[in-house]
Amino acid sequence: MKHLLSASDLSRDEAVLILDTAAAMAATQERAIKKLPTLRGRTVVNLFFEDSTRTRISFETAAKRLSADVINFSARGSSVSKGESLKDTALTLQAMGADAVVIRHQASGAPHVLAQSGWTRGAVLNAGDGTHQHPTQALLDAYTLRHHLVGLRAATDPVGRDLAGLDVVIVGDILHSRVARSNVELLHTLGATVTLVAPPTLVPVGVEPWPCAVSYDFDEVLDAGPDAVMMLRIQRERMVDGGFFPSPWEYTRNYGLDARRLARLPDHTIVLHPGPMNRGLEISADAADSPRAVIVEQVANGVAVRMAALYLLLTGADHMQGETE
């Protein structure tokens, strides 16, 4: 694995390896001294063309806990501001000797362009590109699902296991969601069954070949008793055309997760949200703060998964070394 650009880059075994590696990383984070020497002397650049403090901090924490040197580079994308181009920025980072570039960009495909251009020799890790992909988000969601629904539920160690047999529902703005695209691919690869739920205006034209079902009826899907419900953020900033639904209230009535809908679910069902949440729009406070919600855990798991991804990309290891076991 030279780069991590898309969830579709990962085979079932590679994905399970990342989850297993993340589990080992998470175990080290229980210790008093959390820092590992693994990436000492390596440089990881966080190249963020789009503001996202939470994702940047997650990657920064992951890199630092592996003892890498971290450079945070905030740039404004050429598509928006005619600021410094992706190319010039990449060449600058190359001159700084970046071993890995973690890139967040508002343009779909920007990490692919970076990886294929020859502008950087480092590994490219996609931290979210436009409305395309966000593979580490999908990995941390898969990690969270496996931890709860494969591990805790059966009281077993989930290491080595995939998500076969799980029913996962993803609800909301599919059209603009890189989280949805990544999760559909990765969860399918790991053997889960995925159902997308959204008003038809927020489902992309051309969704037919995706390995998932699509429904416009949230309540009907909930009544089927899914194992997990993942709520997506309504991305008002991407809705420049407007008019995707008549009003926030109608959206909430039909597609919001609230206490009433929560009550229809089986006891074991968990609730996920990639954050940041629009409380009162796609998710009510009752739902966000309920014991079913694993939203805060997702954040912690994000660090472990990103440690695993950086470790595997930068060491080229296809199995975990003793030092982190």
Binding site: S108, G109, D129, G130, T131, H132, Q133, R178, R181, P204, V205, G206, V207, E208, P209, W210
Partner: peptide
């Protein structure tokens, strides 16, 4: 706008 744009996340 079609199956490829849906996957690539590019506006159709």
């Amino acid at each position: 706008e079609g199956q490829v744009s849906a996957e690539l996340g590019l506006a159709g």
